[in-house]
Design a protein around this nucleic acid. Structure first.
Length: 289
DNA sequence: AAAGGTTTCAACCGCATACGT
DNA sequence: TACGTATGCGGTTGAAACCTT
């Protein structure tokens, strides 16, 4: 028996979300919290399927999301993590709590891919090396994936173990990603959202000027799908961080070296098996914490 | 100014996995 | 354990924005 569709195809609206729909969704989630997406369309009257609601929330409406203008640091992290994890965008996004997996995926496909390809073209001398790397990738794809999963399990363990510690440090002045990725910044987010709506759709701008007030400061209502969100400290290990702390002049060259060394474009879907060092650094980073 | 080409990114689709009964 | 359903994930699409000629 085939799996039924997540929603009735008939009567379900598709395409871009309107400001009114966004308001309805945000208001509903404010009251009920994210989750139970199946119930969202029926409870809100939105003519959208549950998937669409979840996606709209996680990729656009969720507070704590930073949009556009990837920093150099973020860019390097994505390049590095993509090499390490392959196209596991959700896993990569867990290291960048302010970014969504969709955003990272898009940025990779539209910007970084091209950028790295360009850099790689000037480095044909390492073709032979890349070929051998590629071979070992295909051979050990599942081993690498397993290794990644073990790493993520460790991360979850760290999270569990550091729960008490982090609770005790809640009043610390140093901000942690979990604080920025939960509802703390939502007022800002919604304001920005409404501002965008005013700009884009003057006709419907009155929708954003209603009496609804958003207050997503309840930290108990989390939406993160990532297992590690909130566990990463603002501090990075020296080795890992140093890769991302180059100035713009150095970065391209460093990236080119990185690519030629690791064969980023040989098979982008496969993580680099030979690249053991960065994984160790990540692990060190986590356990040092 | 207009046409055509290119780029960007929000949203969709289908599969995989988790979860509840 | 098996089955049905909900949710998560990655690949892909297509409309709008932007650029070039």
């Amino acid at each position: 028996m085939g799996r039924p569709p997540c929603c009735d195809k008939i009567g379900v609206k598709k395409g871009p979300w309107t400001p009114e729909e966004d308001i309805i969704l945000v208001t509903y989630i404010q009251e009920h919290g994210p989750g139970n997406w199946r119930a969202v369309p029926s409870n809100t009257g939105l003519l959208r399927c549950s998937k669409s609601c979840r996606l709209r929330w996680t990729n656009y409406l969720r507070p704590g999301i930073k949009r556009g203008n990837f920093t150099e640091h973020e860019e390097k992290m994505i390049i590095h993590l993509q090499d390490l994890l392959g196209n596991r965008w959700a896993a990569i996004a867990s290291y960048l709590p302010e970014r969504t997996d969709n955003d990272i995926k898009n940025y990779w496909n539209t910007h970084l891919k091209k950028k790295l390809k360009k850099l790689q073209q000037g480095d044909d001398a390492n073709n032979q090396e890349r070929h051998s790397v590629s071979e070992s990738i295909s051979k050990g794809q599942w081993e690498r994936r397993l290794q990644t999963d073990i790493h993520m399990a460790k991360q979850a363990l760290c999270e569990a173990l550091s729960l008490d510690k982090s609770n005790n440090n809640l009043s610390d002045s140093e901000p942690s990603p979990i604080q920025t990725s939960t509802y703390a910044s939502s007022t800002e987010n919604i304001a920005r959202l409404l501002k965008d709506w005013m700009k884009k759709s003057p006709k419907s701008s009155q929708a954003g000027s209603g009496s609804t007030q958003y207050s997503f400061n309840n930290p108990s209502v989390g939406t993160s799908s990532s297992p590690s969100e909130g566990t990463l400290s603002a501090t990075t290990p020296e080795g890992f961080d140093s890769l991302f702390s180059l100035n713009s002049d150095e970065s391209d060259e460093a990236a080119a070296n990185f690519i030629s060394k690791n064969g980023v474009f040989q098979d982008e879907n496969q993580p680099n098996l030979n690249n053991q060092m960065p994984l160790t650094l990540l692990e060190k980073w986590l356990f040092d914490e």
